[in-house]
Design a protein around this nucleic acid. Structure first.
Lengths: 233, 233
DNA sequence: CGAACACTTGAACCTAATCAATGAGTGTGG
DNA sequence: CCACACTCATTGATTAGGTTCAAGTGTTCG
């Protein structure tokens, strides 16, 4: 049962970090390891929300499909993060988003009913859930601002900065966004087209703000991006 | 102590509807009636989040100001609804939005610390909070879709439909949005300009979908708007 | 009546989407 | 190892949707 390899990941996850001893053991016993390969789905928008997951390996994204068939990426999930949290609240209603693996993924999942039982003994789970939701709300509000009030340049800058904060790795050159990321994917995160992203990134490279390559972005002057993101131009 | 006039409003509010007897009495005792006149603020973005409110009379909006000075209206609050809910979760962090009265308002407010105490005796408050947050999240996600994937026409249509659902009154002619609402305000809700709103509403009036006037909108053919909102057309 | 406010409408402008063609990098099989 | 296919990316030309600016019409209210 190799899910024990991820004991630490779960213990540090924002949803369960307050669990100790017995409760934690019960938790791990009831979790089910699930592996999903690149491009495949943990769950789809609209499906009954039955499970809550903690990602252990890989990278996933939460996507929403619009009536027109366009897709927008709401957020990325990195190891240690929780997703599918709605299942705890409204098991009856479906997942409001689709969870898709961007790389081969491993995650541990729990049935909503089990977690609800556990939450009765461990009220901290409910508190943690609220914290998570709160974070998520703040994030959504920021994003909303970004989308409704900023021009594309600003949106792209914000997206890159957020990605760097979430998955950046310092190298001697600058901050590398530490996984393959196509122009198309960036575009879906900030509500524009891959063409505009391409043009913009190239312009910024010319200005020395970035170093770009195939599925690669390195931030050389994060501060310059911050200025663009804030609208100081 | 005329806040007792609003006993029923509070008893039906989504945050406190599960409270009975003693707890409810304590609740009402600790609530403070606050009146805020048109255009004035309950609280401003960034201020320490100390109070949670239930609106009793009037109409308020939750606004966010962008770095550029633009403002966007995140949601409208109608009597019986809760606002300032973040105070429960992260009293230390500031309010993430500004609450402004659109008309003269009356609301009852509680200190976050008091509610936290009460929540320990009445776990249903925590549950209700989670329900509220969940609703809010779903709403934000819908809105995000609306903003990132739809053209202005669709956004305006959605905004009107949502307003009608929230504050519509059936008349013999159609659904009247039951409070004064300027083109500017509509524009701020869907991230466009008053000019575009004006043009669009007039076009729709010509098509017979609406009946418009000064600070007045009546939906004559809601179904037609739904079609526009969904992107058929 | 006059001033402030809400709204309308035309014209110029501009951002970013769209379309189309091409180039660069990666991987696979013969 | 090279040829082919495929995906990712760049770049130019065109265009549409919306913003912005400016001028003017109604309305309401002190």
């Amino acid at each position: 049962m190799n899910k024990d390899r991820y004991l630490e990941t779960v213990r540090k996850s924002s949803l369960f970090r307050t669990l100790r001893g017995e409760s934690f053991a019960v938790l791990m016993e009831n979790g089910v390891l699930r592996s999903v390969e690149e491009e495949a789905f943990f769950f789809m928008q609209g499906e009954p929300a039955t499970h809550v997951y903690v990602l252990c390996e890989g990278r996933a994204r939460m996507v929403q499909y619009t009536p027109n068939g366009l897709q927008i990426t709401l957020r990325l999930v990195t190891p240690g993060q929780t997703f599918g949290g709605v299942a705890l609240l409204q098991p009856s209603s479906g997942y409001p988003v689709t969870a898709q693996a961007m790389q081969d993924c491993l995650a541990i999942g729990w049935e909503a009913r089990f977690l609800q039982m556990l939450a009765e003994k461990e009220p901290s789970i409910a508190l943690n859930t609220m914290q998570l939701m709160h974070h998520y709300i703040v994030e959504l509000q920021e994003r909303q601002q970004a989308l409704s009030a900023a021009r594309v340049e600003q949106r792209i800058a914000r997206t890159l900065l957020k990605l760097a904060a979430q998955a950046g790795r310092k190298t001697e050159a600058g901050i590398l966004i530490d996984f393959p990321l196509t122009r198309q994917e960036i575009a879906e995160m900030c509500g524009t087209t891959l063409y505009t992203v391409s043009r913009t990134l190239n312009e910024w490279e010319r200005k020395g703000l970035l170093d770009i390559g195939r599925e690669k972005v390195i931030l050389l002057q994060p501060h310059g991006l911050v200025e663009i993101a804030e609208g100081f131009e």
